[in-house]
Write a protein that binds this DNA or RNA. Sequence first.
DNA 1: TTGTATGCGTTATCAG
DNA 2: CTGATAACGCATACAA
Lengths: 331, 331
Amino acid sequence: MKIRLKDIALRTGFSINTVSRALQNKEDIAKETRQIILATARELGYIPNGLASGLRSGLTRTIAVILSDVANPFFAIMTRFIEIAARKNNYAVFVLNSGEEQELEEQAIGIAMNKGVDGIILFPVQESARSIELLRQAKIPYVLVGRHFDHEDTDFLITDDINGGYLATEHLIQAGARRILLLNGPGHMSCAREREEGYRKALKAYGIGYNSGLVIQHEITHGNTYALLKQILANRFEFTGIFAFSDVVAWEAIYALQEAGIRVPEQMKVVGYDNIQSQLYYPFPLTTIHISKDRMAFRAVEIMMKKIKGEAELECYQEIFETTLIVRSSC
Amino acid sequence: MKIRLKDIALRTGFSINTVSRALQNKEDIAKETRQIILATARELGYIPNGLASGLRSGLTRTIAVILSDVANPFFAIMTRFIEIAARKNNYAVFVLNSGEEQELEEQAIGIAMNKGVDGIILFPVQESARSIELLRQAKIPYVLVGRHFDHEDTDFLITDDINGGYLATEHLIQAGARRILLLNGPGHMSCAREREEGYRKALKAYGIGYNSGLVIQHEITHGNTYALLKQILANRFEFTGIFAFSDVVAWEAIYALQEAGIRVPEQMKVVGYDNIQSQLYYPFPLTTIHISKDRMAFRAVEIMMKKIKGEAELECYQEIFETTLIVRSSC
DNA sequence: TTGTATGCGTTATCAG
DNA sequence: CTGATAACGCATACAA
């Protein structure tokens, strides 16, 4: 049998209202009264009905995380940290995958709204800014993570991807690679554009000409890089280094390289992005760009909480996290 | 401004009730009426309030997935498939991490109940059966995945871990390993016990004595295997094969082996479990035991839906999925 | 086929 | 400090 406030009220002789206020730790309740109520609530195994309280109060203590694909370790790690932080704040999190498809992202936003979430942490697909429009219209607190829109004034937490792209490319160059394949994400993603900007800067700084044939924008969904690289390797190719959009992309690439009998780093130098290995011990030591996944996730939740409570001091929280090079054995 | 049924009612001239019924596609509504209502609902951008409908109807179209740690690729993959299937059924999923701690798992169950989920998919910690007790008392539909209780009559989906353990061990033996370290999960986990049973069976079948010093039960949380193996390798050791509880455990082990300068598979043969590489292209080809993560996840959701709708034909759904050996290069 | 009335469990307002 | 009452938005039973 489900216990309601009413049951506790009946048992203790107080009114439903008093019980509610006592359990909420409101101030104008006698100490003794509160104790009695808390005790019987515990005794009866009372679990508040979040739907009812959410409906009435307008707060559900629930947020949604909308991302590309939780099966991708980068997003899985982010999700984990977000859940840890959310739970500390007594929040539960919905996980919704967009699969990097604009339509599914918008659908996910709709689901989140339907569920009455207090806020949304969004890793936006960026095929259009309609998601932002939706969020804004609904007046629901949100924070973008990892990517941001140039012409929209939103909160966001991103990493210094120009610098990251520069560091990765520079390291490849210093390792002797002149022709460097950029296995980038699609151009609508701000982080992809910025990583490419860093790539270009580094080439320029080292006096290497930019070759558009070496810059590949592709869908970064599961298996796509692998298929693509298989194809590339089947033909003539003249690069000796690869800068991958992410560690996952790098792995897929290396997987394809291995199948083609090309050794990393001897014959091909590879640098990834995200430093997933900061959270998982993979036996393949990938040189990569580190970003602080934990700090970003925690900060995202922190901002979310402030916005929900209406404590946001600033118009927009926009933070750029540092990127650093981690040298392992792939380059 | 949030659109409610009332707004659509006002706009169309029908009553709230009619609008509600029209949007639910109930039968006793005039075709034309329905069309008008649907059109204005769309026009106004109506998003139903799931809290209100959930409160009233008792169904929230929401489930919870409670698992060890989404950052672990195995659970991430399962979560992904579960979300896909749930979403097809118009369900959203809460992800709650237990961190393999009984207390956090029970807390997570409480959160799920508070949120009014229609059902729970649980990868149980199994330190105690109290979680099952909670679930049962609350009369909330649930399915256990990956692990099951011997003395509890519950729905569960597991894999044939005795066979899996046997196949892994047999393969190690056939590859020439006689002294095989079993890096197992804790003994309270049914799947760990069953994998060990398979291990023992294989040893016996090949006339190899069981050596309890080679069987290690340990917490399988992030980083723990790595630390443990570092310690083991620092001392004298005499095994030439490792059967790891999971691919993640295997990776951590191999990571430690590499740091110790021990080559896989030349000096040490390793077999993992779960075949995470069926979903992710990792450039380290791990020999492992395959389990159908997609089929298990889809089935879990399918069962969940049936139980929620009260269509469950059987007392308990108990299914054991096949395990097969995947040979790659680590053994 | 449609409308009215009621209640889901909680919180908020206000009176006592 | 406590209690009565209304309201959140929707779905259901029943009346029309």
